[in-house]
Write a protein that binds this DNA or RNA. Structure first.
Length: 241
DNA sequence: TAGGCCATCTGGTCCT
DNA sequence: AGGACCAGATGGCCTA
């Protein structure tokens, strides 16, 4: 897996990109990389419900999950490895034969022992994936996007990308807030500069907050001192060679 | 029907 | 040895 430099867009699948782009036009959604996000009207899982769409209720071949949990219900606490039906046993045997004797598993184990071990590993893995999905659900719950039942549930990749953008947006907002607080603090007792500062809507200050007063020193230094980098929103930072 | 998304199974690797 | 994690394979369901 390659490490992507910060700020460089990931490479989600085209569908994920389309999903993100079809989301509402909230600022944070388009914050980076043009991922306008997803959600509107795509009824993924709408017909059978978002949880059903997860497929918990649709065991695949060889699946040793005994029954579909209620929608939204947590995964069964105890998924024993001894819950297989006869059909599932057959499926297991078929797969085992297909792989042949030299295939999976520890040759020293007796087949029954080997099978029971395999089933317990499967159950553990299933539980792990359910936990992962629960965590993703928790993430979906705190990302601001349309949560209505008629709206398709965010896919996993869309959830992650959206969360990342949301975090970046929050960090940016926090940074702007700090600038604003610093500006207001510096401006105390200096009514004129404060009044003159044409603060446009939040996050769009057109004048460097640190320029309000002769004793404040060079703007980029102040900006850098505060945020680590000169402000891209600061007129003076841009004007300074 | 193709493509997307998903759950599950499985074998491999690493860690405790 | 056993558990956690990972990635590939497989098959089901859904939508365009």
């Amino acid at each position: 897996m390659s490490i992507r430099p910060p700020g460089e867009p990931p490479s989600p699948g085209r569908a994920a990109m389309a999903e993100l782009k079809s989301l509402s036009g909230d600022a944070y959604l388009a914050l980076s990389h043009g991922y306008a996000a997803a959600a509107a009207g795509l009824a993924y899982g709408a017909a059978r419900g978002p949880e059903a769409a997860r497929g918990y209720g649709a065991p695949g071949p060889g699946d040793d999950l005994p029954a579909a949990p209620a929608p939204g219900a947590p995964a069964p606490a105890a998924e024993s490895s001894g819950e297989q039906s006869g059909d599932e046993d057959d499926a297991f045997e078929q797969r085992r034969r297909r792989r042949g004797p030299g295939g999976a598993g520890d040759g020293r184990r007796r087949p029954r022992e080997q099978r029971s071990l395999r089933l317990s590993i499967n159950a553990r893995e299933r539980r792990r994936m359910h936990d992962l999905n629960d965590a993703l659900d928790g993430l979906r719950a705190v990302i601001p996007y349309a949560h209505s039942p008629s709206v398709r549930k965010l896919s996993k990749i869309a959830t992650l990308l959206l969360a990342k953008n949301y975090i970046l947006m929050q960090a940016q907002a926090l940074d702007e807030m700090r600038r604003l607080v610093a500006f207001l603090n510096q401006g105390q007792g200096l009514a004129a500069p404060v009044a003159a500062a044409p603060l446009t809507p939040f996050g769009q200050a057109t004048v460097c907050p640190f320029s309000a007063g002769a004793a404040l020193g060079p703007c980029p230094d102040k900006c850098a001192a505060f945020s680590g980098t000169p402000s891209a929103l600061c007129k003076h930072c841009h004007e300074k060679p």
